[in-house]
Write a protein that binds this DNA or RNA. Structure first.
Length: 478
RNA sequence: CGGGGUGUAGCGCAGAUGGUAGCGCGCAUGGUUCGGGACCAUGAGGCCGGGAGUUCAAGUCUCCCCACUCCGACCA
């Protein structure tokens, strides 16, 4: 009789969700702790997931006309000071370099928490004419923010990300860019990471320091909390004026370009874990899994088994899949549990009985289903199964999102809806920040976004009772 | 930065009233195994988070640090 729980090392998520998360991060060999709080080591398996996300995103950035650059690590304090809202937002969590060798620096240097100011300073040197625009830049780097409490992937002091920065001749063009890049994130999340998203606008309270508009994609985790999975900002010309990035337009007048920035970080890996993982470990969407299928020989010492398993690995590799064979001397059961913990989407078992029957056994990580696959059809059936896993994972996540999204007309209804297990609540909203704060007070939720897809779920703001402007989504956020 | 928890072998832990460290797993070697975390034998592995103090003697008692972790406030 099969045991219900196969991996002893991982705490059940029902028992302690945070511990479950941390267990997966370490037991699946994604991260290790370093000697400095909030600075994590991405181990090869964890980094490989990031590399796959990175290559998918990079491909899309380039397809939409962007170029990669590399900006300095350090920002002179005077540069950071130039845009007042921006400094106010980031100053509390900046780390500073004050010494060079044994000399104290005449101006202290901030280790970049984000690079808007660096890009703007650079553009002020190189942009003179409408012919120089747009500048469509992106950089892959890490940034540093001195967070108080830290967790692997979800909140590090240093984290890897990409930051796109663009400037355009007109507001319209910049606004289109902002939404275009939000769509890139949304498409990656849904099609590759199997994470359904809600696209929307952040309230003024929640928007990025210095931005005119902040757009977001919000995802729901297993514990029904929200994870902001990507953001895209429209800045207007606030920074470009502050940094004096003036250009001469076609009509020979001096103008300031309109700016955007957008980012996605390794936090998304935390999102993948908390969207798809289960009590046996990580579950990775096939499209970004470093190993899409693992071949496990059964009774490896028996004549021909190891060779046959090697042959399967070679055939699947030749078919373009990311495949690994586990020929270690661990027992098959050990290997099953190990690769489950690491979230490999498909396990392929091949033993003496299979070889005799001209087949192998494929087991899906997402739902545990096993099926026989004829060796003759290997190259067509395995990719089909991977597609099925990918879709199955999305549907499961979508179901979680739908089943824990409620609508409410009063604050009491909001509290009632969140009573067992939390989730997202849609209400109308007057647009007043005071009501946003009051909701946090009364129901313990913050605004996640004002969704692009609006519904009329009432007529008045549930807090103040005044006529409502729009629908907003509330939730507890990571 | 406020509150809680934890630091002893790689990991998980045990070490009464102080006497110079032990168990399980893992690791190494050899052998038997192999369709859901196999077993036997042998072996390696320790500045007991750090620093002061008390004492003939500190993993153990007293102070002070530090790190990790969880819950709040702030953020991707």
């Amino acid at each position: 009789m099969a045991k219900e729980k196969k991996v002893e090392q991982i705490t059940d998520m029902e028992v302690d969700f945070a511990q479950w998360f941390t267990d997966i991060c370490t037991k699946a060999e994604l991260v290790d702790y370093s000697g400095v709080k909030g600075l994590f080591i991405l181990r090869p398996y964890g980094y490989a997931i990031w590399e796959n996300i990175q290559s998918e995103l990079d491909r899309r950035f380039k397809a939409t006309g962007h170029e990669n650059v590399s900006m300095p690590l350090l920002i002179p304090e005077s540069l950071l000071q130039k845009e007042k809202d921006h400094v106010k937002g980031f100053a509390p969590e900046c780390a500073w370099v004050t010494m060079g060798g044994s000399e104290e620096l005449q101006e202290r240097l901030c280790i970049r928490p984000t690079s808007e100011t660096l890009f703007c300073d650079h553009w002020s040197h190189i942009v003179h004419s409408w012919r120089d625009l747009p500048c469509l830049y992106n950089q892959w780097c890490s940034v540093l923010r001195w967070e108080k409490t830290t967790r692997p992937f979800l909140r590090g002091r240093e984290f890897l990300w990409q930051e796109g920065h663009t400037i355009h001749t007109t507001e319209q063009e910049a606004r289109e860019e902002t939404l275009r890049m939000l769509d890139v994130y949304a498409e990656l999340c849904e099609s590759y990471l199997a994470m359904p998203v809600i696209k929307g606008n952040k309230t003024d309270k929640e928007k990025f320091a210095g931005a005119v508009n902040t757009y977001t994609i919000e995802c729901m985790m297993h514990d029904h909390k929200a994870l902001q999975s990507g953001t895209s900002h429209y800045f207007g010309d606030g920074f470009t004026r502050a940094f004096d990035i003036a250009f001469t337009d076609k009509d020979n007048t001096l103008k300031y370009p309109h700016q955007t920035s957008w980012g996605m970080s390794t936090r998304i890996i935390g999102g993948i874990i908390m969207t798809h993982g289960d009590n046996n470990g990580l579950v990775l969407p096939p499209r970004i899994a470093p190993v899409q299928a693992v071949v496990i020989p059964i009774a490896m010492h028996k004549e021909g088994v190891a060779d046959k398993a090697q042959e399967l690995v070679a055939r699947l590799k030749a078919a373009g899949l990311r495949v690994k064979g586990d020929f270690s001397d661990n027992s098959p059961g050990w290997k099953f549990a190990e690769w489950e913990m690491k979230g490999v989407p498909l396990r392929i078992e091949i033993g003496p009985k299979d070889i005799e029957a001209g087949k192998c056994v494929a087991a899906r990580r997402d739902n545990g289903e096993k099926c026989d696959v004829s060796l003759a059809e290997l190259e067509t059936r395995i990719p089909e199964l991977l597609d099925a896993v990918q879709l199955g994972m999305f549907d499961k996540a979508k179901k979680n999102l739908d089943e824990h999204t409620y609508t409410a007309k009063t604050t009491d209804e909001v509290c009632e809806a969140l009573k067992n297990g939390g989730g997202f609540v849609k209400t109308m909203w007057c647009g007043d920040e005071a009501c946003e704060l009051a909701m946090k007070d009364k129901a313990g939720v913050s605004s996640r976004c004002i969704p692009f897809e609006q519904q009329r779920v009432g007529e008045v703001c549930p807090i103040c009772g005044k006529p409502a402007k729009e629908m907003i989504i509330w939730g507890v956020a990571y």
